[in-house]
Amino acid sequence: MRYIKGEAFKYLCMAATVIALMLLALLMWDAWDKGAGWLSLKFLNSFPSRFPEQAGIKSALWGSIWLMILTAIISIPLGVGAAIYLEEYARRTWLTRIIEINISNLAGVPSIVYGILGLALFVRGLMLGRSLLAGALTMALLILPIIIISSQEAIRAVPKSIREASYALGSTKWQTVRHHVLPAALPGILTGNILSLSRAMGEAAPLIMIGALTFIAFTPAGPFDPFTALPIQIFNWASRPKAEFQFLAAAGILVLLALLLAMNAAAIIIRNKYQRYIKW
């Protein structure tokens, strides 16, 4: 009987996996079926337009790339710094525990809430307007908890014995962190950061909330320019009645998926490359 239950559970899990994969495949096939015909260099290189045949994704693509880079510049130093502090410097007191619990809770807050915060804090409070910088700051807030948590995990995975070896030679804390802990944790930290950034890449809600524009016929030239991003452009096209715009939306989804896949692939390559060298 116990054996039968075990087997049944196994097949149930398998069925769940297969259903999930099939749904994913269905979605991809749908996007491919509708959008592939519309993909072209011209599509990547044109600005949005009222006329579907002339419309392209250039401003959204560049907006997303700008947004990604600015978000990375803001969130990675902050997040990794916080993770180093929490793991290596802070003593385990009730205060650090409360901080850590709150960071995990923040990771679960819906992205629209970050949008509201960004609107109040950056767009209005700091008077950054609907600029790239306001968007990047909002996205940075959104992914900061994930960056901190994944970096903490990577740092925690560095064995205690390496720290002890370093301290026993008379290294200071900073030397130990700088020369041993960080290099060993770096692949894990990078992987986590890239995955967090790819999460930010796919988010539309907070950007809509802070009022990123949908119709922008230029690429941003600096962090204070207005912008649009891929998910917003896709959302905009998808909400239009004309059938051609649905195809444009599908093509936009393909571009976004390609970018996300590339980022995830980079994360996997980094992880595998370093795992070969570091075995404890």
């Binding site: 064995p159 014995s161 390496i162 002890e164 070896a165 370093s166 026993a168 030679l169 008379g170 200071t172």
Partner: peptide
Amino acid sequence: PVALRKKIGMVFQKPNPFP
């Protein structure tokens, strides 16, 4: 402690070379 540990070396149970 940093100066102290320079004067007093330590070898651990499990070999722990740096990678």
